[in-house]
Design a protein around this nucleic acid. Structure first.
Length: 424
RNA sequence: GUGGGCGUAGCUCAGCUGGUGGUAGCUCCUGGUUGUGGUCCAGGUGGUCGUGGGUUCGAGUCCCAUCGCUCACCCCA
């Protein structure tokens, strides 16, 4: 039996990879416009990093991390998300001293040991974005505006939901109010009874209808914010309005990682089965300090590449690889030698050129040219060699032109390029 | 961790109450055109029917086990 990829690990093959490149290229372009710099961090980190940032009792840390001992016995973990690694690198490299506000992004694989399903793999890929060193509400709005713009330029349509989770000053009071409220209900679903003990906030996004009917009247976090948090939230929404970014306030929205404070948001779609978030994030003002860094605030979000790719595929607008500029069809050994040399010369000059290696019939070579979506085909056969010419065919119109040979190959390549331009 | 669905060609799939693996579609190769692609026509390559066991004269089909994929719960990007 041949070796196959691990469960939840996928190849991205030619034909699909173009969609990924489109997503990555579009996102990179936009992030650069907004002043973000790329940072590349290792995939493997000390386990402690994630326990301290994501939270000891979260599902991610408790049962989903790829954690194993290194050869020397220390515990390593394949990163389950991007923020922790970026913050570690930010602190370790003293980036807070290089610039008061750092805008960073990273793109790459993340790992979580879950049961795979639509839009959820064990190795998945995220575009992860962070702003460190400022807690101005305007930054929150700018970040969400950028996320929305990426979605828009990808040609997708999703909805933005926002909430505030408060801060260490006001959240405990809300937690208590919520706990008091749900303690009085005994016919919650099994999951909610469990959540009530472990992480009461989480009951709010339960999908069970009876549970939701109770939560309708549950205390709202937005009514329990302290003055600072309330001002912050008001300013964020005002700035979103100023940018004409569509959003919906969802006071039930909670996050799965412990480090979030104040602003949280999700980019939601109904087109991905049970996985509705294509992107999500929020503010994490105490996190850098918690990781033994300076006491600077931060905000960030991540988008799921697989989920964006699924949405694009479902739109059935296939993104294809670019076509050839020129295919060289050569007949006979002498012509093939010449074609080989010429092809290299054209490629050196920046052209996307190709040729056949197997001495196939002209018909077959024309077929290859057509399949590769060549704009032009250059036919080099015995007749042409005799006359010191090549035959340049415009594959769109079918027009054919004689092009003079002669001189060295480089010169000829230049003449050919000129000729192709005039034929277009 | 818990449930449901599905495993037949490189891909998408047909295969009836068990009776010889499909002129199936797409792809690929060759020819129709001694040197001209996309369309068309003809031919061809390609399969341990996921794997192991059982029932049977006979199993792709029925039974059991196992592996894989997939969707959903849970969780999350």
């Amino acid at each position: 039996m041949a070796v196959k990829a691990l469960k939840g690990f996928k190849d991205v093959v030619p034909g699909d990879v173009e969609t990924w490149q489109f997503i990555e290229g579009t996102a990179r372009d936009i992030m650069h416009r907004f002043g973000y710099a790329e940072i590349k961090t290792p995939i493997l980190e000390k386990t402690k990093l994630f326990k301290r940032s994501i939270g000891e009792t979260t599902d991610i840390v408790e049962k989903e991390m790829y954690t194993f001992p290194d050869r020397n016995g220390s515990s390593l973990t394949m990163r389950p998300e991007g923020t922790a690694s970026v913050l570690r690198a930010y602190i370790e490299n003293g980036l807070h001293q290089a610039k008061p506000v750092q805008k960073l992004y990273t793109i790459g694989p993340m790992f979580r040991h879950e049961r795979p399903q639509k839009g959820r793999l064990r190795q998945f890929h995220q575009i992860s974005v962070e702003v460190l060193g400022t807690d101005l509400p305007r930054v929150d709005a700018e970040l969400m505006g950028m996320a929305a713009l990426i979605i828009e330029e990808l040609g997708l349509s999703v909805s933005l939901e926002i909430n505030s989770l408060g801060c260490p000053a006001c959240r405990p009071a809300f937690n208590k109010a919520l706990l008091d409220y749900i303690s009085g209900i005994d016919d919650l679903c099994e999951d909610c009874l469990r959540r009530r003990e472990t992480n009461p906030l989480r009951v709010l996004d339960c999908k069970n209808d009876t549970c939701q009917s109770y939560y309708k009247d549950a205390p709202s976090i937005l009514d329990h914010l302290c003055l600072d948090c309330e001002d912050h939230f008001t300013a964020v929404t005002a700035d979103l309005d100023r940018l004409a970014v569509d959003y919906r306030v969802n006071h039930f929205m909670v996050r799965g990682l412990d480090y979030y404070t104040r602003t949280t948001f999700e980019l939601i779609t109904g087109d991905l089965g049970s996985q509705s978030a294509v992107g999500a994030g929020g503010r994490y003002d105490g996190l850098v300090k918690q990781l033994d860094g300076p006491d600077v605030p931060g905000i960030g979000f991540a988008m799921g590449m697989e989920r964006l790719a699924l949405l694009l595929e479902q739109k059935d607008e296939r993104i294809t690889a670019p076509g050839l500029d020129l295919f060289i069809a050569a007949l006979g050994g002498q012509a093939q030698d010449m074609a080989f040399e010429l092809c290299h010369e054209l490629r050196s000059s920046g052209l996307f050129a190709a040729l056949d290696y197997q001495d196939r019939s002209l018909k077959n070579q024309m077929k290859q040219a057509g399949r590769a979506q060549a704009d032009f085909t250059l036919i080099l056969g015995e007749d042409e060699l005799k006359n010191n010419t090549g035959l340049l065919r415009n594959m769109q119109t079918g027009d054919q032109y004689e092009v003079p040979l002669g001189g060295d190959v480089a010169e000829w390549a230049i003449r050919l390029l000129d000729r192709m331009e005039t034929c277009e």
